[in-house]
Nucleic acid binder design. Structure first.
Lengths: 178, 178
DNA sequence: GGCTCCCTGTCTCGTTCGGGACGGTACGGC
DNA sequence: GCCGTACCGTCCCGAACGAGACAGGGAGCC
């Protein structure tokens, strides 16, 4: 019920945008709940009705974005080039969010969380193995994204997707044989 | 009381921004109340609690901006160059609003209203005369602003202020002698 | 040790808001 | 003609919200 209430969706959106603004301005560590709510024109009480703290806000914003990209990419297919491209197009569309969270002003806590999320997305493609390869792949992947965003996204999403895919396949054929 | 409620101020701001967006996109005439509230993430009921119709929204947004510029310029001084510059700096800061309202996609109704507002600002400087000179001055003034905004504000506010002031003084010395 | 700030997280009460339905008007297609 | 569609403007009621106060926790400074 309340999930679809326009006020709830609006509050979430305003808080999300204020969060990204403030991370860009002063870095995640220096962002306070009061500053977020002031920028968002939302009361602190409303913030705490929806979130435990600023960390949970980041998690939820991130989860929503990941859910969206999972939806557009699809779950059960093998990794094709179209899916790589779709992923980087998603990063491109949300570049302010990811750049703020993963960049120099982001938080190490979140970067680690993102790597583990990526590992979970990758792992099903390598059944019956331990989780070293997914972990390394996701680390490489996260690093590629961070580099791309920190350098203001040079080239098109297609190009960076192709380069990233090339690196990943090299890693898989080299170390994936067991 | 309710004027200072954060929700009221937020609603006004969201509606104002949505209005400017939509005028830029489709022109004032094609903007509906439903489209404004949808873009602003505000209910139609909330809109009608605050405004009679879209025209009153524009009027109030415009009145707020004019009140602000009157405040920064001051009321009782003679027109100095500093005041001309301050005025164009205001136009510059709110260029999306004025560009949307006065430009090709704006409304003739509003442009006329703006001219008469400018005439009211100018008239006190020419006491004891009929109102032809203020009317002509404000028309020229409005035209200058419209031209500047439609051409993406070439030059600095200072430069356009100086040119505009030069034109105005020429008009005054020519026709103001009576 | 004190003291002052600033921030956190929680709560209550009165206000504003959204959902949704209503009747009315205008326009266009068949 | 008679439909369907779209927008307007108004209303009620329950839900979300803001204001403001509260206790508690650091960090810095004298």
């Amino acid at each position: 019920m309340s999930q679809s209430d326009l006020r709830v969706r609006r509050t979430r959106r305003l808080l999300r945008e204020a969060l990204v603004d403030l991370i860009e301005e002063r870095g995640f560590d220096k962002v306070t709940v009061g500053a977020i709510t002031e920028r968002a024109m939302v009361s602190r009480a409303a913030f705490y009705r929806g979130y435990r703290d600023k960390y949970q806000l980041v998690e939820q914003v991130f989860d929503e974005a990941m859910a969206e990209v999972r939806g557009t990419i699809g779950d059960d297919e093998r990794p094709t080039m179209a899916r790589w491209v779709a992923f980087f197009e998603h990063i491109d569309a949300y570049h302010r969010l990811y750049g703020a969270l993963l960049g120099r002003r982001g938080s190490a806590w979140f970067a680690a969380r993102m790597r583990s999320s990526l590992a979970e997305m990758v792992a099903p493609h390598f059944p019956g193995q331990d989780d070293l390869l997914p972990a390394v792949l996701s680390g490489m992947f996260a690093e590629t994204i961070t580099w791309w965003l920190d350098h203001d996204r040079p080239g098109t999403p297609q190009e960076i997707a192709e380069r990233s895919a090339g690196l990943a396949y090299a890693l898989i054929t080299a170390g994936g044989g067991r």
